[in-house]
């Protein structure tokens, strides 16, 4: 490979993106972690009370993580809440972030150490590890409008985007691998099986129309295979791709009662969040001065980054 091609590949991994997007992601994702600890992976402290059911996963064994106890899971809980709140304010976001990343990874490791592993946390966990690598130039409120572009910010955002897409593409790989490396999954009775085990009104109605379930399986199977294309789409087309997969999760929630919110929230890495503050400023200045044509500084710059 020539050196220009290598640098093009390296450039793809490190687009120049405004620090403001990272600031928004910090606030949203650190607050989401607090929600997650209470609504999704919420039995970690309970596992501290019943360590006899603990079956440590590979990472926990490699790093010799202690068996969960009331003391260490309570400490983990308190540390995570405090660090997430600090990180979400964008004051000392890197120190807080370097605490949240290992702490939440451990929290999820314990939560999934009962024989059942969920696959909706990849992008969120990756996001928590890459966010603290980004050095900010402004703190607190000013961070949300910081249009300084950096490759470090772009790399972090790209890593989250790749992890979101990997969640779908690797789900496709698993569907091909699981029946013995073939394409029998989409015409199998997998959704019927899932609904029988978790019955609810929408699903039970669908059980009478297996052809509809097969159509959904084919759509999901093909969409998961094609998902990496979204990484190279721009602007409106990328938005359509994102909305398709969010619709996919709405359908999954209706049929399987599986919401995948920890992955859904990470779709925001694709959104040009750095435009929020210029947009708000623009609206405010319109209202204050009545000059609709006035363009605030930085908005033109932000426009060019759309879809990056």
């Amino acid at each position: 490979m020539s050196s220009t091609r290598l640098s093009r590949v390296a450039g793809w991994f490190t687009p120049r993106i405004a620090l403001a997007r990272v600031a928004w992601l910090r606030t949203i994702l650190y607050l989401f972690v607090i929600l997650d600890m209470h609504a999704f992976v919420r039995d970690t402290r309970l596992k501290g009370e019943h360590p006899d059911l603990y079956q440590p996963l590979l990472l926990a064994r490699i790093f010799h993580l202690p068996t969960p106890s009331v003391a260490n899971t309570t400490a983990l809980y308190v540390v995570l809440i405090v660090a997430c709140v600090i990180g979400a304010t964008n004051w000392f976001p890197r120190i807080a972030g370097w605490i949240v990343a290992p702490a939440f990874t451990w929290w999820v490791l314990i939560g999934m150490s009962d024989g059942k592993v969920d696959h909706d946390h990849l992008a969120l966990v990756v996001a928590l590890w890459v966010l603290p690598t980004v050095k900010s130039t402004s703190r607190g409120r000013a961070a949300y409008g910081d249009q300084t572009r950096s490759e470090a910010a772009g790399w972090a955002v790209r890593c989250v985007q790749i992890s979101v897409i990997a969640t779908y593409f690797l789900s496709w790989v698993a569907k091909v691998r699981s029946p013995g490396w073939n394409f029998s999954w989409p015409s199998s009775a997998i959704l019927t099986w899932a609904i029988v085990r978790r019955p609810h009104p929408v699903g039970e109605w669908l059980l009478h129309h297996p052809w509809m379930l097969h159509v959904m399986q084919w759509v999901g199977f093909i969409a998961e295979f094609l998902s990496p294309v979204i990484l190279w789409l721009k602007g409106r087309w990328q938005l359509i791709g994102a909305l398709f997969f969010i619709g996919f999760h709405v359908a999954n929630t209706a049929i399987l009662l599986i919401h995948f919110l920890p992955t859904v929230v990470c779709w925001l890495a694709f959104a040009p969040l750095e435009r929020v503050v210029p947009w708000l400023r623009n609206r405010r200045s319109d209202r204050d001065t009545g000059e609709a044509e006035q363009e605030p500084e930085g908005s033109g710059q932000a426009q060019q980054q759309a879809g990056a």
Binding site: L57, L58, M112, H119, H121, S171, S178, P179, I190, L256
Partner: peptide, 14 residues
């Protein structure tokens, strides 16, 4: 191998 394991939820062919 989480988080590096397969995304095997509902991946089986029934």
């Amino acid at each position: 191998a989480w988080p590096f394991g397969p995304m095997s939820q509902y991946a089986g062919a029934v």
